[in-house]
């Protein structure tokens, strides 16, 4: 899709030499690829790696926020804010727990709830939950191995029955509450919730599937 190494090298040639990332192949970058970029960002403050993450995720974050109805200029600002958060907190990223896509999804969602939905207490609460999780995983002897494969989950999402797929998208990509979905689709609230439950159960099975 994109190979921005050259552009980055022009901006920061002395840093480009230290890039530890593997050569970019034609295949879509996987979770391990992003994990390597993240270690370069956190350990060496490597801008080339950062810009690879930027080139891939900034447009996606932008599209996600625009779909939620965020005005373009604010979406631009929130995307920058999300990527700056990544730059500052790269050391907090734990690939054993979640993929980079998931980590950035959380950051963007939190910014959306804070700035657009104006729930000023959401961010500190999420930081609190993060801290609890960090304390907990530090206490465990061995990191739980992430048995989760994004491709399998992606396929499972694509295989959801149409109604369940629609409800999941209305939740995540339009940020609609159960009651709003119920009103919009003229579907009883109980049916909205049970469809979402069934969809979640299926997707969870796919996340636990042996590789």
């Amino acid at each position: 899709m994109m190979d921005s190494d050259q552009a980055v090298a022009e901006v920061a040639p002395f840093r480009a030499k230290r890039v530890v990332a593997p050569p970019v192949s034609n295949a879509a970058p996987d979770a391990q690829y992003w994990s390597i970029q993240m270690s370069a960002v956190s350990a060496q403050r490597d801008r080339a790696s950062f810009m690879r993450i930027y080139d891939h995720f900034a447009p996606r974050l932008q599209r996600y926020l625009r779909n939620l109805g965020v005005p373009e200029s604010m979406a631009d600002e929130l995307v920058q804010e999300a990527l700056l958060t990544l730059w500052r907190k790269a050391a907090m990223f734990d690939p054993a727990r979640a993929s980079l896509a998931t980590w950035l999804y959380r950051v963007a969602r939190n910014l959306y709830i804070d700035h657009v939905r104006r729930q000023p207490h959401w961010l500190p609460i999420q930081e609190g939950l993060d801290r609890i999780d960090h304390v907990e995983s530090a206490r465990l002897d061995s990191q739980p191995e992430s048995s989760f494969d994004q491709d399998i989950l992606k396929q499972a999402i694509d295989r959801l029955p149409p109604v369940q797929a629609k409800l999941v998208r209305m939740c995540y990509l339009e940020s609609k509450s159960h009651s709003e979905i119920s009103a919009e689709l003229q579907m009883p609230l109980g049916s909205v919730k049970s469809s979402l439950r069934r969809a979640f159960a299926k997707l969870q099975v796919s996340m636990r599937a042996p590789r």
């Binding site: 995720f57 996606r60 974050l61 996600y64 993929s99 896509a101 950035l104 999804y105 994004q150 999402i157």
Partner: peptide, 10 residues
């Protein structure tokens, strides 16, 4: 993680 995959798919 579902949100992460949906983000990837944009």
């Amino acid at each position: 993680q579902i949100g992460g995959v949906l983000l990837q798919q944009q």
